[in-house]
Amino acid sequence: MTIIQNHINIDKPVAEVYVFLADLNNHEQLMPDNIYNWSSTADEASFTIKNMAKLALKISQRVENKELVCVPSTETPFAMTLRWKLDALSDNQTKATFMIEAELNMMMKMMASGPLQKLVDHQVATLKSTLG
């Protein structure tokens, strides 16, 4: 299992960060420029990664103000889970951790680790700038 992650502290209450992340419609704002054909509901999202693949995700688990877990809703080249974990650092500060857990063989790990890390880094940075 390969785990790719990053975290950031956001000056917002944990409940506010959770409400934003719990609705997949909001995740389009967190995506990099190479994502297009975005379509979503509160529970599912599908999109195309430029020069790569089409991907569809669904929320498999919500733990209020703590965690949000997404899994592919269609077949993917490798098994993966996308997980947002939230920790209240104070009444107005939240630590948000985004991780991708993927079953990558050595070849896929060499090819995918860099782009996946860039995606994780982009999403946590964009979450902070989006929520202020």
Rank of each mutant, 00 (worst) to 15 (best):
D33H: 09
K12C: 10
S60L: 05
R83G: 02
V19K: 15
D43Y: 07
L68N: 00
N26A: 03
R83D: 07
L57E: 09
W38T: 04
N65T: 09
T97C: 14
F20D: 05
S40G: 11
D33I: 07
D43S: 13
S73C: 10
N37D: 15
I100K: 03
P77L: 07
N37F: 08
I49K: 02
K66M: 07
E64F: 11
E67V: 07
I8F: 02
A102N: 01
W84V: 02
S90R: 09
T97K: 14
V14G: 03
K12H: 14
A56H: 12
E101P: 03
L57D: 07
L57T: 08
H27E: 10
P13N: 08
I59K: 04
M31S: 15
Y36M: 11
D87W: 05
I59F: 00
A56L: 08
F98G: 00
A56R: 10
E16H: 08
N34F: 10
W38Q: 03
K85F: 01
D43G: 08
N25Q: 07
L68I: 13
W84R: 04
L55Y: 10
I100W: 01
V71E: 15
E103W: 05
T48M: 05
Q29F: 11
V63T: 15
E101H: 06
Q61Y: 04
T74E: 14
E16G: 04
D33A: 11
N34D: 11
D23P: 02
I100A: 13
V17L: 08
D23Q: 02
A102T: 02
T81I: 10
E28D: 12
A22F: 00
T74S: 13
Q29N: 11
I35R: 06
T48D: 09
W38M: 04
L55G: 00
S90Y: 08
Y18F: 05
S73R: 11
D11C: 09
A56G: 11
D11I: 08
K58L: 12
E44Y: 06
Q61I: 02
S46H: 11
D87A: 12
L68V: 11
T81D: 05
K66I: 07
N9S: 15
P13H: 04
L104T: 00
A45V: 08
A53L: 13
Q29K: 15
S39W: 10
V19R: 15
P72G: 07
T94I: 06
N25S: 02
E16W: 03
E44S: 11
T97M: 15
I35G: 05
E44G: 02
I59Y: 00
T76K: 03
I10K: 02
C70F: 07
I59Q: 04
E75Q: 14
K95S: 10
H27I: 06
F47C: 04
Y36E: 12
T74Q: 14
I35V: 12
